[in-house]
Amino acid sequence: MDVTLSSTERSMRGLSLLPLAPGPQLALGPEITLCLGPDKTPVAAMESAVAFVHRTLPTLLAGSPPALAVSEHITSVVRELVDIVARDCHAEDILGRVVFDGAHITISIGEKRGTLPEPDVEPGLYLVRRLVDDIGQYAGDEGGYVVWASIPIQEV
């Protein structure tokens, strides 16, 4: 499968998934989850991720005009982070998540083989750093690095 349905899209379509494990489940709140297969070139991965996020973002951010106001920033950051990870991909698939907690949009894309380069090496990071209030990486489950960025939601 190329792109998975997010919890937002599942609720839009009236679908539900059974929990993977019995007992209490961790609730992360509204999110978009995507998975891009290994057959994608970096350009195709960017296009697929941006199209999926663009399609589901209005539902994720429903009821929050300030969040909707930064939706172009969100898709720009997704585009750049997917590009960076796709060109140095450690795992077979590129996994991503966009989470909205009411105050921030957090975007996580993984897994990248090496650490984040400096913006001089990766010019797309200049744009990302201009749009976010924080950016970083952490060790992923597959031995690579998950790159993340946080976009603040300002009251307008």
Score class of each variant (00 low, 15 high):
residue 28 L to M: 13
residue 64 S to W: 07
residue 53 V to L: 01
residue 45 A to N: 06
residue 23 G to P: 05
residue 14 G to C: 00
residue 77 V to I: 03
residue 126 Y to K: 10
residue 44 A to C: 00
residue 45 A to M: 11
residue 49 A to H: 04
residue 52 F to I: 08
residue 12 M to T: 05
residue 50 V to H: 05
residue 35 C to N: 06
residue 70 V to R: 15
residue 34 L to D: 12
residue 57 L to G: 04
residue 104 H to F: 02
residue 107 I to M: 00
residue 113 R to D: 03
residue 21 A to F: 15
residue 86 A to Q: 12
residue 48 S to I: 04
residue 83 D to S: 10
residue 138 Y to T: 14
residue 118 E to Q: 14
residue 101 D to F: 09
residue 116 L to A: 11
residue 149 A to I: 08
residue 153 I to G: 13
residue 75 T to F: 00
residue 85 V to N: 01
residue 57 L to D: 04
residue 137 Q to I: 05
residue 116 L to W: 04
residue 115 T to Y: 08
residue 65 P to N: 07
residue 105 I to P: 06
residue 42 P to K: 07
residue 93 D to I: 00
residue 103 A to P: 03
residue 132 V to N: 03
residue 117 P to N: 09
residue 88 D to A: 10
residue 138 Y to R: 15
residue 106 T to K: 12
residue 70 V to I: 15
residue 31 E to V: 06
residue 93 D to S: 03
residue 48 S to G: 01
residue 12 M to D: 04
residue 12 M to C: 08
residue 139 A to F: 07
residue 128 V to S: 05
residue 124 G to E: 04
residue 122 E to L: 00
residue 22 P to F: 06
residue 149 A to V: 08
residue 37 G to I: 03
residue 76 S to D: 10
residue 89 C to D: 08
residue 39 D to W: 11
residue 6 S to F: 05
residue 28 L to C: 07
residue 73 H to Q: 07
residue 148 W to A: 07
residue 11 S to I: 08
residue 118 E to L: 14
residue 141 D to L: 15
residue 62 A to M: 12
residue 86 A to V: 11
residue 103 A to Q: 12
residue 36 L to G: 01
residue 12 M to G: 01
residue 103 A to C: 07
residue 131 L to S: 03
residue 68 L to C: 13
residue 102 G to H: 08
residue 77 V to M: 03
residue 113 R to N: 06
